[in-house]
Design a protein around this nucleic acid. Structure first.
Lengths: 300, 300
DNA sequence: TGGGCATGATAGTCCCGCTCTATCAGCTCG
DNA sequence: CGAGCTGATAGAGCGGGACTATCATGCCCA
């Protein structure tokens, strides 16, 4: 058996298309086809359902895919680790972060990059579900996501901070001077909210239900800055996480009031998949965050 | 990179000898040598310290070994799983069990083998430390060992029963009729105990210390049946786990009394390493044990 | 109904690299 | 100093993985 062939299967299962899978593997399409045939032959089982086009994997194929994914990720881990030992800490650390956590990422990534010139980061804004899947498929090294709302499986976690919720309004709105706003009051406003594929929105919805309210958002988006933009433009109010307002401060002309009744919090933290051996890159991030937390250098 | 080359490294690290490693891989010695050289070349790092003989691995080599071990185990898992899907449950399930747990293994293995003609078992008597290492190195699929005394890491567990301790004597000894014996009293007798590399012995020693006693065993062995033999031969008393006396009953002419002050118990259970995807073989064992426990078919 | 396009399999060829046997070189030990 | 052990090197054979070019089929739309 050949590692390349396992990668072919992984690519095919992800792309669901022979040509694109071949491209992803940097080989020609016949090479990928032949490699998969050889793999099927060696394993003595059909893995791919072939009609005139890709039609999915067989049950055996799914099983082999699950293993192959893991094996390929470990081979990558081996190579990254080795390069890190040779050239000092090097390679790309891929972090998936939910949008509301993006403002705190820099307080982790800045000390991480300091003094590690070879280290490269990818910070990807993703939904909590995409993060979970990305970790499982070893496309991410770590995630920053909710810890307590929709439980995760097979991962280790480290709490970073607790998310609190604010109503963001223009200062000249009726609620524009209130020190606190209830969820009930907020629900009655014209609201700009995140789209329902984001866990933040699902949290907001569930708190609303609990408060006996049903918001009818005038605008939905998956970008928080778009949310803020629309508040500033006077489209309506928005419900945002406190963390989002920290770094530059509150934009001029806007007002943010804590949401109460209920005053709810959700833990957000670093999440990574337990692997053995533990990749040096991930290890570095985790020990750094532990140290930051111990020394009280993390916000909130 | 090539899976075979990773296996060469794993074999070499285990055998610490090129010739034997080659034999273990079913290839010639030059093949293994050349394969390792190519691996070093591809990875761009020396892995093996070469003098005139094998002199260990470099730091990089140790790291690659750790990954390679994992990768090789997963490739095996893939193949075993696939065969299981084709031919029904087949392959060899390797279980390591501490000696005192051996009598209960058959109550697991018998229902496991029933109706699964393709399934083969290896039950290996090992120390708890060997079991821990065997699981880590993927040389075992599961273990039966202490759960609470010397904590395990990176594994999942399922309790089977609680171990209690008895003093085994000949019936004509001074204590040969007592319904109960204190650890203090036992310590004063001529004792036959397991050797100190076994956790059972370390448990006995710690309870003894706690009871303010210090046993001077007249005989040490790593075989429980040898222990019983020597009691029968009149060499002394022995401290054994209750489970050991269950299957054939107490041998004629012997007496077993529960040890009290303190009356101590230690949990013994099934232990397996968390892997993803979960191998079908291990999964079968675990669900079987869960069912047996739920239905109360496990002893004690 | 027929042309164009998308998709994946086949054919033919090249050559890399894995494997073997045979042999060499250096160290250790009697 | 010679025997034995250990690992590296040399040279030959061949399997299989990679490429380009082409084919077969299905689908869409005119």
């Amino acid at each position: 058996m050949q590692i390349a062939q396992l990668r072919y299967l992984v690519a095919l299962a992800r792309e669901r298309h022979f040509g694109r899978a071949a491209e992803a593997c940097h080989v020609s399409q016949p090479t990928l086809s032949a490699g998969l045939q050889r793999l099927e032959e060696e394993l003595g089982a059909r893995l791919v359902l072939r009609g005139r086009r890709f039609e999915g994997l067989t049950a055996e194929g799914e099983r082999v895919f699950a293993w192959a994914q893991r094996i390929a990720a470990d081979v990558d881990g081996l190579q990254v680790d080795l390069r890190a030992m040779r050239d000092g800490l090097t390679g790309r650390l891929r972090i998936g972060a939910i949008p509301t956590s993006l403002p705190v990422v820099s307080s982790l990534s800045a000390p991480l990059c300091a003094g590690r010139p070879g280290l490269e980061l990818s910070v990807l804004s993703m939904s909590s579900r995409e993060i979970e899947q990305g970790l499982r498929q070893a496309e991410l090294d770590a995630g920053i996501t909710y810890l307590d709302n929709e439980p995760l499986s097979g991962v280790r976690t480290l709490r970073l901070y607790r998310e609190r919720y604010l109503l963001l309004t223009t200062a000249d709105e009726p609620l524009g001077q209130s020190p606190e706003v209830t969820w009930q009051e907020a629900a009655a406003r014209r609201l700009c909210l995140l789209s329902p594929d984001m866990q933040n929105r699902r949290i907001v919805d569930s708190i609303m239900r609990e408060a006996g309210a049903a918001p009818r958002p005038v605008l939905e988006t998956n970008s928080i800055s778009t949310l803020v933009d629309h508040v500033r433009a006077g489209v309506g109010c928005a419900i945002v996480a406190q963390s989002w307002l920290r770094p530059p401060g509150l934009p001029a002309g806007l007002h943010a009031a804590p949401l109460v009744e209920p005053r709810r919090e959700h833990a957000i933290g670093l999440v990574w998949r337990e692997r053995e051996p533990e990749p040096l890159l991930a290890r570095t991030l985790i020990t750094l965050v532990r140290r930051l937390r111990r020394e009280g250098l993390l916000p909130e």
